[in-house]
């Protein structure tokens, strides 16, 4: 484990938990990113404003972090662009079908002790582990 960083991970995680709690306190909503973003794409979603502002906050901070700490986006490993596009398609389709991603099911759902979210989290962790195993160890790191 040459890149093991438990302390920033724990602090960063705590901040994510705090952000989700802030959205719950102010708007009474679950901070599930795929849900917030996906609903913006759908016609007739009520309460678009807060979704738009949340995503805008996410994006604005992304730009600010890039300016002040570009290493946050550094990547020694990177999938090729066609594979990344395919990955995006699958993540988009899957998170809409399964009503959530790492934030909605993983963080918020598990905190609520939701059985649906537990099943979802175990499932996506399982297929995530399996996918990396196949790509890295069976296909020999094919990109």
């Amino acid at each position: 484990m040459h890149d093991f960083t438990p302390i920033p991970a724990l602090i960063g995680g705590a901040i994510i938990g705090l952000a989700a709690s802030l959205l719950l306190l102010t708007h009474g909503k679950v901070a599930g990113i795929s849900g917030l973003y996906g609903s913006l794409l759908r016609q007739g979603t009520s309460d678009r404003a807060f979704r738009l502002w949340f995503i805008a906050g996410l994006a604005a901070m992304g730009m600010l972090v890039r300016l002040t700490w570009p290493a946050a986006f550094a990547s020694a490993w990177s999938a090729s662009l066609p594979v990344t596009l395919l990955a995006g398609l699958i993540v988009g389709f899957g998170t809409q079908l399964g009503n959530g991603c790492t934030s909605g099911h993983g963080v918020c759902g598990l905190s609520r002790l939701s059985v649906r979210s537990l099943v979802a989290t175990l499932t996506f962790m399982g297929t995530g582990f399996a996918t990396v195993f196949v790509v890295r160890h069976l296909l020999g790191g094919a990109r």
């Binding site: 395919l86 398609l89 993540v91 934030s103 297929t127 995530g128 582990f129």
Partner: peptide, 18 residues
Amino acid sequence: LGAALFGVGWGLGGYCPG
């Protein structure tokens, strides 16, 4: 099925939505 697909895409690209 949705969660399973999400995990595959997450593993392929290294990105989740947020």
